[in-house]
Amino acid sequence: MLGDLIPVMTGVAMAGRYLGQNIVAMTWIGDGGSSTGAFHEGLNLAAQQRAPLVLIVENNQWAYSTPVARQVPIKNLADRAVAYGIASKIVDGNDVVATYETTKSAVEDCRAGRGPVLIEVKTMRMKGHAQHDPAEYVPKAMFDYWKTQDPIARYETYLTEHKLWDAKKKSEIDARIERELDADQKFAEESPMPPAELAEQGVYCEGCHTIEAEWRRAKKEVIPPASNEEAVWKVADFGAFKGPFAPAAAAAPAPRAAASGGNGAESPLVAHDEPEVAKQTPLRVPFGRGPKDRSVELERRDKVAERPPRHNKPPHKRRRR
């Protein structure tokens, strides 16, 4: 179900750190899935554990037929990060290079032990929710705008402008993609359906897998007596407050040097600038169907009230049509 992978990948990130693997876990969610309980529980645990998790929120403006403006009352989904005390970034998701660079820096931050990063990727779902859905509820103007932002076309322009390829290279790549797609389609269509009796197999692991953790640190670090030390990701000012009952700074044990680099003591709340794309995208989109937003309704009513009355005759004297 939507959001399930956020706590799961938090666990992967925690396990990777525990095993000394120096990995960063990445997972994806949409604007729609960002409202699930698992999203918030997972993000909070990742934040509390300072887990090396990069969460990409693909904001493609629509959750099935519901636009973002009718899902959440916030401007940027990245704003969620502030509440969890983690870093966030917003990027134009149709800019391949910007998305790559933003993600890379987020992964580097994670690897340095600075805790999870949420990246909101602003983009657009150019088709319906699935094959059956013609997406008539999406205003045409919105499609028209986003057609001008096609990420492939923009990336091709970038490559051309930076002289990173030429027409020959482009046609080679296009031909290769066509070939690969054709081959995959052929493979899928020619593969036989699985035998029916397979339905009864594989519910349980009965010796089909060997489960063994890949240790990249000395096991003795996590076996007593060495194990009873402070966690590496202790945050110095975590939960701190001013007042007579504030815990004495001296009482907090010094964090052990991180096994996977970084001391994890910083908790930088990266303020994000509003990117161009957010300014360009209309915040309130007109809805094709369904009830209108109340403010839209009130606006319309005000306009009606301003209009001079159409009928001068009292209602009982009007002729019925």
Partner: peptide, 8 residues
């Protein structure tokens, strides 16, 4: 569940 995926 995620931790168990890495063999814990």
């Amino acid at each position: 569940c995620g931790m168990s995926y890495l063999g814990l």
